[in-house]
Amino acid sequence: MGETYTDEPGGEGATGEGWVTDERVRWAGLAVSLLFTALILGFIALILYEYVNYDLLVSVVPRFAVAFVRVLAVVVISSVLAVTLGVFVGLGRVSRTSLTHSIATAYVQFFRGTPLLFQLFIIYLGVPSLWEAGQFPINQNWTVVQDVLWIDWSFITAVIALTLNHAAYVGEAVKGGINAVPEGQMEAARSLGMSYVDSMQEIILPQAWRNALAAIGNDQVILVKDTSLLTVIAFPEILTVFREINSNQFDAWTPIVLVAVTYLAITLPLMHLVQYLENRAEWGRGDEDEEGGPGSWLSWGGDR
């Protein structure tokens, strides 16, 4: 290679398309992203100065706070249950016992193959109709925090449906994570006399967990956003509050700002938690495949 090496296929022979250099691509990328940032910031400034009614905004904050608490409660419970159940679904998916494997596969196929909205209806409407009219036992609300958090059939439905649905996705992530652990790990563990269960627990799952973390985290962010569907089962979630305010006050941008803030108040800390867990599982490889510098969560997304 000559001194004017430019990373192109063809190397020194390729003189015709020489103007696409690494340097120029870098500058073009920077220019585009700065332009994009300027446009977005300008637009946000315009909205905040011209279209947001601050008196209304302050007065509806409590309603969003209530929705935030209720959604957060559903998310935390469903997410913990979905990840726990998902680990077992993943274990079922890699099981060599064919019945176990078939059941886990059918489970994943059903919950990934039908809409979450439909699954919500099955539980919210289908389950109570198994009882004689008016006999369904879960008909009162259990108040946890007065006027903020109460548990009724829509809350229970939300937790069950989100758990079952996302356990299927977590299960697939866990399965992929297990399959990515080299075969030799299980052989080494078994050759030391460890049982299959001990080997899974001590050797395979911790590594599978690390492999699957990004995908599992991604799915939990989707779980947060899936709570917007709960409006159809009369669960007062974040977009329900938006629609009430929008139709009563004829104001779109004031509640839009609050909706964005409320969702991000859940999803951003969640993304940071996942990043923290990923960093913690480096096991002496801290310098390799490290996530980029400050503000790395900006690059966090479904593409990984």
Binding site: P182, G184, Q185, E187, A188, A189, S191, L192, G193, E202, I203, P206, Q207, R210, A281, W283, G284
Partner: peptide, 15 residues
Amino acid sequence: QRVGMVFQHFNLFPH
């Protein structure tokens, strides 16, 4: 437990 084995690719537990 009575038979120790050492592998070509070490197979150490990375975590």
